[in-house]
Design a protein around this nucleic acid. Structure first.
Length: 280
DNA sequence: TGCAGTGTTGCTTC
DNA sequence: CGAAGCAACACTGC
């Protein structure tokens, strides 16, 4: 589930703990997570000091003392956890909850950084040159950055076709929005996920732009959403789930009290939740 | 019991 | 070329 607010929470909570730490050892039981392969990763990471940690879209980026990078994408069920040690019997982080899904550990000179990932979809890459990494450089603008102006948003929409929900989910158009927040943003803006992007009115575009900034900012303040698996580095849950208005609320009355009912509809391979009465 | 559904992405197919 | 479908994996809930 980690979308922009969850990844932002992870990065900001890890920063003070792992900056300046040296990577002593790398462990995994799932080599397929690694790009280009585990041996390259291990050679590139071992002995390095972590100089910086940052976020780009849903990606976590560690800059190493060699000037090269580690990129972690948590995909569906990944969480990066930090603790003082690992309990090998329960595969649990010392100060976290029991967790049998740890598939990757960086042993640092102080503490450990572990990736929990039930479905093993996560990606852990060693990248010599970030700018030359296609998955990274194709990403669209950061929606909370100064660069993402209303003009920029209009330009993105102008070049897009199809339904607005699909545009919001496209990482190469805007980076970091996933299924939860696209539903919540569209509800906030009173725009149906099924609307054709080209047919949005000027006023709706403006409201949508504000809703993107508003919802993502609020979710970061709440430390993200834990619908099922996402955890903060400490193992704690995010607090935004209770603020969700439509996501996973099929059949409930519209929280805006318009008299409509939240509907779930499948398209583009995923489900969209919305109120057909007040989202036009 | 069994099967549909799950936060993401990228590959294959048409 | 774009759009759509599906696979990667393991679990939950109806």
């Amino acid at each position: 589930m980690p979308e922009l607010p969850e990844v932002e929470t992870t990065v900001s909570e890890l920063r003070s703990r792992i900056i300046g730490r040296k990577i002593l050892k790398v462990w995994t039981d799932t080599k397929k997570l690694f790009k280009p392969d585990f041996l390259t990763f291990k050679k590139g990471a071992t002995g390095q000091t972590i100089k910086e940690i940052s976020r780009r879209g849903k990606n976590i980026i560690l800059k190493l003392s060699s000037g090269k990078y580690i990129l972690v994408h948590q995909k569906m069920t990944g969480s990066l956890l930090y603790g003082s040690e690992i309990n090998p019997v329960r595969n649990a982080i010392s100060n976290g909850v029991k967790n049998p899904y740890i598939h990757f550990i960086l042993y640092l000179d102080k503490g450990i950084l572990a990736l929990s990932d039930l479905r093993k979809f996560a990606k852990v890459a060693f990248i010599p040159d970030l700018k030359a990494y296609p998955d990274y450089q194709k990403l669209g603008p950061e929606p909370l950055s100064r660069e993402f102006t209303f003009g920029k948003f209009k330009e993105i929409l102008k070049k897009s076709s199809g339904k607005i929900k699909k545009v919001l989910l496209d990482q190469n158009k805007i980076a970091g929005i996933g299924n939860i927040y696209s539903d919540e943003i569209l509800f906030e803006a009173r725009v149906s996920p099924l609307r054709e992007t080209q047919k949005l009115k000027a006023k709706e575009t403006k409201i949508l732009y504000s809703a993107i900034k508003k919802i993502l900012t609020k979710a970061i303040k709440a430390k993200g959403t834990s619908v099922s698996d996402y955890r903060r580095p400490s193992g704690e849950k995010g607090n935004f789930a209770k603020f969700l208005k439509v996501y996973r609320r099929e059949g409930e009355p519209c929280p805006r009290k318009c008299g409509g009912k939240v509907q779930r509809l499948k398209f583009g391979g995923r489900s969209a939740h919305f109120c057909p009465r007040c989202q036009k």
